[in-house]
C-alpha cells in the first residue's frame, strides 16, 4: 500500500478543488506490487504460471469463438458488420506497408503532441508551486480543459493549424497538459516538510529548493503523468484524424468504415492498440531507468 501511494496521484483532482482520484493506468502497479508475483514472473516457469496461461487461453478461446462465428449467431450479426479475425489478418497482410506508414504518422503526432503538452504542463506546475496563490488558478483552468471533449477541440485546432500534423499535435498537447500539470504539481508540493526545513537551514533560495528537492520529488509523479499521457496521446491523435485528415490510422479507420471495408478498419484498431502499448512500455522502461531510487521500483 505505502509503496504505491505515491504512484497514484490523480490528474483530475484539482478540477474538484481537492478530490482524490487515480490515474487509469497506475492501478496496474498498485495491484501488481505483490513481490512474490513479480519474482515468479522472472522464473523459467513463467509460461506455465496460471497467471499467464489462464488469460492467454481465454484470449485464444475468444478468438476461436469469433472465428467460428459464434458471436455472429449470438448477436445476429453479419460478417460485413463484424469481420472474422482471419479476414482482419488478411487485410493487415495486404495493406501492411500503408498501415505501417500510417502508424508511424499517427505515432509521431502523438509523440510530438505528448512531449509539447507534458512540457507545458510541467511549466504550469512549476509556476503553480512557486506562486501558489495565483498560479493555483491556472491548474484549475487546465483541469477544466482536460474535461473538454477531444472531439470539440478537433475542429478548432483544424481552423488554427490547418489539416497537417500540427493540428493533431495541438489536440494532443491540449489533452495531455492537464495530467502532467496536476501530477507534477502534486509531486512538487508533496515534499516532506522536514526536507524543506533542511533546505531552509542550508539557507537555500527558492531556485535551489526547486533544483535539489521539489523537481526530484516530483519525478515519480511526472512519470505517472507520462504513462497516462502515452495512452491519452494515441487517443487524441486518432480521434483528431477522424475528421480533418488525409493520412493516419484514424483517417483510414473512419474512411474504411464509411466505405464498408470493415476488416481494414479493424486492422487499424489492432495497430493502434499495438502502437499504444509499445509507447506505454517505452515510457515505463524510461521510468525504470530514471528513478531507480524510488520505492516503487525496488523489488
Amino acid at each position: 500500500m505505502s509503496s504505491s501511494s505515491v504512484q497514484e496521484p490523480s490528474y483530475m483532482a484539482a478540477a474538484g478543488g481537492d478530490g482524490p482520484s487515480t490515474s487509469l493506468i497506475t492501478t496496474k502497479e498498485s495491484i501488481y506490487s505483490d513481490p512474490k508475483k513479480q519474482k515468479g514472473r522472472r522464473h523459467l516457469t513463467k509460461w506455465l504460471n496460471p497467471g499467464v496461461l489462464l488469460p492467454l487461453a481465454a484470449g485464444v478461446i475468444f478468438l476461436l469463438l469469433w472465428e467460428l462465428e459464434m458471436f455472429h449467431k449470438l448477436f445476429d450479426l453479419k460478417k460485413y458488420q463484424l469481420p472474422l479475425p482471419s479476414a482482419i489478418w488478411e487485410a493487415m497482410r495486404e495493406n501492411y506497408s500503408l498501415l505501417l506508414s500510417y502508424t508511424g504518422y499517427t505515432l509521431s503526432e502523438a509523440v510530438l503532441g505528448m512531449l509539447t503538452g507534458s512540457a507545458c504542463g510541467f511549466l504550469i506546475a512549476l509556476a503553480a508551486t512557486a506562486w501558489p496563490r495565483w498560479g493555483g488558478g491556472s491548474l484549475t483552468l487546465v483541469a477544466a480543459l482536460n474535461a473538454v471533449p477531444i472531439v470539440a477541440l478537433a475542429p478548432i485546432m483544424n481552423l488554427w493549424f490547418g489539416d497537417g500534423i500540427g493540428s493533431r499535435a495541438a489536440i494532443v498537447t491540449a489533452t495531455t497538459m492537464a495530467a502532467m500539470a496536476i501530477n507534477a504539481y502534486k509531486g512538487m508540493s508533496a515534499v516532506d516538510p522536514l526536507a524543506l526545513d533542511l533546505m531552509h537551514s542550508y539557507a537555500a533560495g527558492k531556485p535551489a529548493v526547486f533544483r535539489y528537492l521539489r523537481i526530484q520529488n516530483s519525478l515519480p509523479y511526472v512519470f505517472t503523468a507520462l504513462k497516462i499521457n502515452a495512452t491519452a496521446s494515441m487517443i487524441g491523435a486518432i480521434v483528431g484524424e477522424f475528421f480533418f485528415s488525409s493520412r493516419g490510422l484514424g483517417y483510414l479507420l473512419s474512411n474504411s468504415i464509411k466505405v464498408a471495408k470493415m476488416p481494414l478498419g479493424w486492422s487499424c484498431i489492432v495497430l493502434a492498440a499495438v502502437a499504444g502499448v509499445i509507447f506505454y512500455l517505452v515510457v515505463e522502461r524510461l521510468e525504470k531507468v530514471f528513478i531507480k531510487w524510488h520505492s516503487s521500483q525496488r523489488s
Binding site: 477531444i150 502515452a230 495512452t231 487517443i235 486518432i238 477522424f242 479507420l253 470493415m262 484498431i269 492498440a273
Partner: peptide, 13 residues
C-alpha cells in the same frame, strides 16, 4: 491492456 489501447477508436466500429 484495455487501458493502454485507444478505446475511443472503437467508436466508429
Amino acid at each position: 491492456a484495455s487501458q493502454m489501447i485507444p478505446i475511443l477508436g472503437l467508436a466508429p466500429i
